[in-house]
Design a protein around this nucleic acid. Structure first.
Length: 566
DNA sequence: CTGGGGAAGGGGCCC
DNA sequence: TGGGCCCCTTCCCCA
C-alpha cells in the first residue's frame, strides 16, 4: 500500500514536471509566433502607410488635373471674344523630350538675364516641370475679378514647385522675373503689354497695333517634360517643318546662339547653325474676335478652317500665317465659322472605314515611358475647345494614348534615325506603315490615317475629317453646290470624280472586266460586287432565318419584308 | 421576293 | 488647296 502511495506520488511529480515543460514549450512557441506576427504586422502597417501615401498622392494629382481641366473649360467657355490667348501648352512636350535637360530661352530684353545665361531645368531626376505661356489682352478682365484670367495657370508636381521657384527667383536674380508667373491663388495684378515686350523683342515684330489699354499676360508654366519655350529639336515648326521665310513661326528670344542653350536631342542633325530655339505659336483668331495682339492680318480670310489648314497643313510651305507663335494653338470657333478646327483629337468615328484605328486598338499595349517626336501628343494633351466634341472624347483619348504610348518609342527611334541621315528625302518614317516622308509635317498628316485623328469637323453635322480638303468637299453636301456639270446631259455633281465617272455612261466605257466571265463594268465597285456572284460569297446573314445575302442592302430589304418587327 | 447591274453619293488619301 | 483616284455605300431598276 505504501509503495502504491509512493508510486502515485512519483507519478504525480513526473506529470507536474512534464506539464511544466509542456507549458514552457507552448509559451515559447507562442512567444515566437507572436514575435513573427508582430513583425509581419509591422511590415504590413508600413506597406499600408506607403500605399496610403501613394493613394493620397494619386488622389491629389487627379484632383489637381480635374481642377485644371475644369479651369480650362471655364476659360474656354467664358473667354471673351476680344481676348486673344496663346496658351494651352499642357504637357505637350511629354514624350517629345525625354530625360536630359530642358532649357528655355531667355527673354531678350530682360536685363536681369545675362545673354549667356542658360536657364536649365534638370529633369534627369524625373521630376517634371510644366511651362505655359499665356498671352492675353486685358479684355479678359471680364473673365475674372480684377483682370485675373483663369487662363493663367501654374501646375506643379511635387518638388516641381520649388524647382520652378528656384528657377524663377534664381534666374531673375532677385529682379522681376522676365515673365509673370503667378499662382492661381495669387491676387490678380494688372499687367501691361510691357510684359510682352520685355520678354522678347521679336514679339514686337508681330504684336502690331497694340493699344495701351491692352494687357498682355505672359505666364510661364514649366512643362512636365519640357518647356513651352523649348527649342524645337529640329528647328522645325510645330509641324516639324522648317519655317519658311516669311512664315510666322516666331523665334522667341534672341535667335543668336549665344543666348540660347537649348536641349538638343539626336535630331540635331537637322539643325542649322542658327539655333532658333523657337517656340512655335499658332494663334487662331475667329473672325469676330478683336485681338489685342494683331496677328490676324486678314480677317477676311478668317475662315478658321483655312487658318487651321495653314497652321497645320502648310507647315512646310512658304505660307504667311497670321500667327503669333508662342506656343500651340488654342482654337475655338463656333457659330458662324463653318468649319471648325478642333484641337482635340478626333479619332476615327467611321464604322467601316476606321479599320486602321480599330486594328490598332486591339494590338496596342501601353508604355507610359515612351516618347515620341510626334506632335500628336499635343492633340492628346490639349484641352478640347470645341463644344462639338461628343462624349466619346475620353474614349478617344484613351485609344489615342494607347496609340501614342505604344508606338511612340518606335516613332522616335525612326525619326531619330531618319534625322541622322542628312538625306532630304523620306527622312521621316511612318511608325505604323514605314512609309517615308520628306517632312515631319507630312508624316503627321499621314499618320492621321492610322491614328484616326480627324481635326476638321463640320459645324453642320458631326462629320469629321483628317484633311481640310475633305471637309471642304463635304460641305457641298450641305450647301448643295454641284459645280461639275455634264456636257452631255443635265446632271450635275459635287465632285469632279463623280462627273468623270458619270461620263462613262455617255461614252460607254467599261474599263472593269470580270475575269470569270465577260461582264464589264463602268465602276470598280460594281465589278467587285459582281465577283461575289462567282465566289458565292454571302457574308450577310439574317439573324432570324439564317438566310445569307451577298449585299447588306439585300439583307436589309429581306429583313424589312420578312421580319418587319425589326 | 430575290438577285443582280447601273449609277450616284460621299469619304479617304495621295499627289 | 485642289485634283484625282480609290473605295464603300446606297438607291433604283429590272429580270
Amino acid at each position: 500500500m505504501a509503495n502504491c502511495v509512493v508510486f502515485h506520488t512519483q507519478i504525480a511529480s513526473v506529470m507536474e514536471v512534464l506539464a511544466n515543460a509542456a507549458v514552457a514549450e507552448i509559451c515559447k512557441l507562442v512567444d515566437d509566433d507572436y514575435a513573427v506576427f508582430r513583425l509581419e504586422i509591422t511590415q504590413s502597417q508600413k506597406e499600408n502607410r506607403g500605399l496610403r501615401r501613394k493613394l493620397q498622392l494619386l488622389e491629389l494629382k487627379v484632383a489637381r488635373d480635374r481642377a485644371e481641366r475644369t479651369m480650362r473649360e471655364r476659360v474656354v467657355a467664358s473667354r471673351p471674344s476680344s481676348v486673344k490667348i496663346l496658351d494651352q501648352y499642357r504637357e505637350m512636350a511629354r514624350g517629345h523630350l525625354t530625360g536630359g535637360r530642358r532649357s528655355f530661352v531667355k527673354p531678350v530684353r530682360d536685363n536681369t538675364w545675362r545673354d549667356d545665361q542658360p536657364i536649365t531645368v534638370d529633369e534627369g531626376s524625373g521630376t517634371s516641370t510644366q511651362q505655359v505661356m499665356v498671352i492675353e489682352s486685358a479684355d479678359g478682365e471680364s473673365a475674372g475679378p480684377g483682370g485675373s484670367s483663369p487662363v493663367k495657370q501654374e501646375r506643379t508636381e511635387g518638388e516641381d514647385l520649388q524647382q520652378i521657384r528656384n528657377i524663377q527667383t534664381g534666374v531673375a536674380a532677385g529682379v522681376a522675373p522676365p515673365v509673370a508667373t503667378k499662382d492661381l491663388t495669387a491676387s490678380p495684378q494688372p499687367r501691361t503689354k510691357r510684359n510682352i515686350t520685355e520678354n522678347s523683342g521679336t514679339m514686337n515684330e508681330v504684336l502690331k497695333s497694340e493699344t495701351d489699354t491692352e494687357t498682355l499676360i505672359v505666364t510661364q508654366r514649366l512643362l512636365h517634360t519640357g518647356s513651352v519655350l523649348r527649342s524645337d529639336p529640329e528647328g522645325l515648326g510645330p509641324l516639324g517643318c522648317p519655317p519658311a521665310p516669311g512664315s510666322e513661326y516666331l523665334l522667341y528670344g534672341n535667335p543668336s546662339p549665344r543666348t540660347v542653350h537649348s536641349h538638343r536631342d539626336s535630331c540635331d542633325a537637322l539643325e542649322t547653325g542658327n539655333d532658333p530655339s523657337c517656340s512655335y505659336t499658332t494663334e487662331i483668331e475667329p473672325g469676330n474676335i478683336s485681338l489685342g495682339l494683331e496677328t490676324q492680318n486678314d480677317l477676311s480670310r478668317g475662315n478658321l478652317n483655312q487658318y487651321s489648314s495653314s497652321v497645320y497643313s502648310e507647315g512646310c510651305l512658304d505660307k504667311k500665317g497670321e500667327v503669333i507663335v508662342v506656343d500651340e494653338v488654342t482654337v475655338k470657333v463656333e457659330g458662324n465659322a463653318p468649319p471648325t478646327w478642333n484641337v482635340d483629337c478626333h479619332l476615327g468615328d467611321r464604322h467601316s472605314q476606321g479599320r486602321d484605328l480599330l486594328d490598332y486598338r486591339g494590338s496596342l499595349g501601353t508604355n507610359l515611358n515612351v516618347a515620341t517626336h510626334s506632335p500628336l501628343h499635343a492633340f492628346r494633351d490639349r484641352v478640347p475647345v470645341s463644344t462639338t466634341m461628343g462624349p466619346s472624347d475620353s474614349h478617344d483619348s484613351i485609344v489615342f494614348d494607347q496609340v501614342l504610348n505604344s508606338k511612340g518609342q518606335k516613332a522616335k527611334a525612326q525619326a531619330v534615325g531618319a534625322t541622322s541621315d542628312n538625306s532630304n528625302e523620306k527622312q521621316f518614317l511612318c511608325m505604323f506603315c514605314n512609309k517615308g516622308f520628306s517632312c515631319l509635317q507630312k508624316l503627321e498628316i499621314h499618320q492621321m490615317v492610322h491614328t484616326g485623328m480627324k481635326p476638321f469637323s463640320c459645324t453642320q453635322c458631326h462629320m469629321r475629317f483628317s484633311h481640310s480638303s475633305s471637309l471642304k468637299r463635304h460641305q457641298r453636301v450641305h450647301t448643295g453646290v454641284k459645280p461639275f456639270s455634264c456636257t452631255q446631259c443635265h446632271m450635275r455633281f459635287a465632285q469632279a470624280g463623280d462627273l468623270k465617272r458619270h461620263q462613262r455612261v455617255h461614252t460607254g466605257e467599261k474599263p472593269y472586266s470580270c475575269t470569270q466571265c465577260h461582264m464589264r463594268f463602268a465602276q470598280a465597285g460594281n465589278l467587285k460586287m459582281h465577283l461575289k456572284v462567282h465566289t458565292g460569297e454571302r457574308p450577310f446573314a439574317c439573324m432570324d432565318c439564317g438566310k445569307r445575302f451577298s449585299e447588306r442592302s439585300y439583307l436589309m430589304i429581306h429583313q424589312q419584308k420578312n421580319h418587319s418587327t425589326l
